[in-house]
């Protein structure tokens, strides 16, 4: 049996390795996936349209802004649904098999606490960088928000849920999640009020002393910030609900 497994692994590995040659090069504009006229338009015209070098973000936040807006709404809805289904109020203590001291006292572990103290600021700084640099390099609101939410989860893992809850109470979670979508939709509405289509950012140059092309670039940043708010809040909300059997009191 072991020999058959070994042969299967070898054959699969050989197949995978032999397929490497057929991959298109990294960033190859003539790869089959980029063969359509639509892709060619994005490749040639994104920078002149929006002055954003990262065309993925341009497609995501500008050309297909509706899609991303409702993606954010989907995340918001998922978070609200999890809170709505799982969250239980009131105080019955029978749900957890662990002792009270274990729950109440934050665990003292010098090594883990020191590492977290070192790492959490760096993680959060990196998350902000990923958000703010989303239209220049790989990154954006979803990724940065996920990293930011993960830093709160790390805090909850290293100390306990209460410590993280102090930094990020439930009320604040819900507010931030809503504010994120309002920021995104607000950009769209501002475009609408100024007389353009919904989420057509170029009209926003009237508000600031910039050109219409720059307005599209900067609006993408604003939109990403909105997305990041929602993703951060919902990430931590899902974690804290699932881990504490929805009482927000104890858990890991």
């Amino acid at each position: 049996m072991k020999i058959i497994g070994f042969i299967a692994v070898c054959i699969t590995g050989w197949l995978l390795l032999s397929a490497i040659n057929d991959f298109p090069d990294f960033g190859d504009p003539h790869s089959p996936a980029n063969g359509y006229r639509l892709s060619q338009y994005y490749i040639t015209d994104t920078f002149t349209d929006t002055s954003v070098p990262n065309m993925v973000t341009a497609v995501l936040a500008d050309y297909r802004g509706y899609d991303t807006l409702f993606e954010t709404v989907v995340i918001f809805t998922a978070g609200i649904a999890i809170i709505g289904i799982l969250r239980r109020y009131g105080s019955s203590d029978k749900s957890v098999g662990r002792s009270k001291a274990f729950i109440e006292e934050p665990r003292k572990d010098l090594l883990i606490h020191t590492t977290c103290r070192l790492l959490i600021p760096i993680i959060q700084l990196f998350a902000l960088y990923v958000i703010a640099h989303g239209h220049h390099s790989p990154g954006g609101g979803f990724q940065g928000g996920a990293i930011f939410g993960a830093s709160f989860i790390l805090l909850a893992l290293a100390h306990n849920l209460k410590t993280a809850e102090k930094r990020m109470p439930e009320r604040r979670i819900l507010t931030l999640a809503g504010v994120g979508i309002f920021i995104y939709a607000g950009f769209g509405l501002a475009c609408l009020i100024l007389g353009n289509n919904f989420l057509d950012y170029s009209i926003l140059h009237k508000l600031l002393p910039i050109t219409p092309i720059e307005a599209r670039s900067h609006s993408m940043l604003g939109v990403e910030i909105g997305v990041a708010f929602t993703v951060t809040a919902i990430m931590f909300s899902i974690y804290s609900n699932l881990v504490s059997s929805s009482r927000m009191k104890e858990g890991l």
Partner: peptide, 13 residues
């Protein structure tokens, strides 16, 4: 450097 920090810590945890 980050892996050097985090990997032993996670093992410890």
């Amino acid at each position: 450097a980050f892996i050097m920090l985090t990997s032993p810590t996670s093992t410890h945890a």
